[in-house]
Design a protein around this nucleic acid. Structure first.
Lengths: 119, 119
DNA sequence: ACCAGTACCGACTATTTGGTAAGTGCCAAA
DNA sequence: TTTGGCACTTACCAAATAGTCGGTACTGGT
């Protein structure tokens, strides 16, 4: 049945950006096309495998576009599609909120005992 | 080292809402306090364990507040804190985007071969 | 010739996350 | 008295997610 019933738009967004680094990739691509190596350096801590995997998924999902320059030492760039750009636009408020509350969130994360992403 | 260095606000948001059902919980709580059982019915498909676990984490993180009525058949409600409300407010645009692009996203998700959340 | 860099693949492993199923203590309705 | 609901816990298990390491095919610098 491939249950594609989103209760609230949120789920649709998560269906697309549900990957540890995907929002970051979209964010960095919002400022223009980048090549793979550039993204790898921009999105710190991402492993090459995950970057490429997410890049492929985002490409499949029509969020970004892969541009292969067909040169012999490979040169590939990624850029947002229109769809991706609309998504990036909506991501901006989130980003702002995060920026405004960075220290608050940092404190929260530091003070938790849960063995989550703050390891 | 507890690396709490967010490159972009996005990461801060994800640090708080990084759980399969957390955005949904915040979303549902945006329309007023709810009791546990209510949330369980509202957030369809969530298991009791995950709901309560997320509820606890969100409480720890100061996003929601737990109100225990101290009655004998337990009665507990959850409501957003101010912090949680500001977060919910920023979630709204995301939600809207998702709503506007629901069918588009549904198509995308259905057409992918990846063994992700669309199972 | 040798090493580094480009973009990417694939096997293997580890960690995180989510889910099932059972149980607790107490009360109310059947 | 049995059943069911409330909020919640625990133990165990499965799946998704992420990470490491090594390899490809080719070029450019030294």
């Amino acid at each position: 049945m491939t249950e594609t019933n989103f209760q609230c738009g949120l789920e649709a967004v998560l269906a697309i950006l549900g990957g540890k680094w995907k929002p970051l990739v979209v964010y960095h691509l919002a400022s223009g096309p980048k090549r793979t190596g550039q993204l790898r350096r921009l999105v710190t801590n991402v492993s090459e495998k995950m970057l490429i995997q997410h890049l492929k998924e985002l490409t499949d999902d029509g969020v970004i576009r892969r541009i292969d320059f067909q040169t012999v030492p490979p040169h590939v760039e990624y850029e947002l599609t229109d769809f991706g750009q609309s998504l990036a636009g909506v991501l901006a408020p989130l980003c702002e909120w995060g920026t405004h509350h960075t220290s608050e969130v940092a404190l929260i994360v530091q003070n938790r005992s849960r063995p989550s992403a703050g390891a």
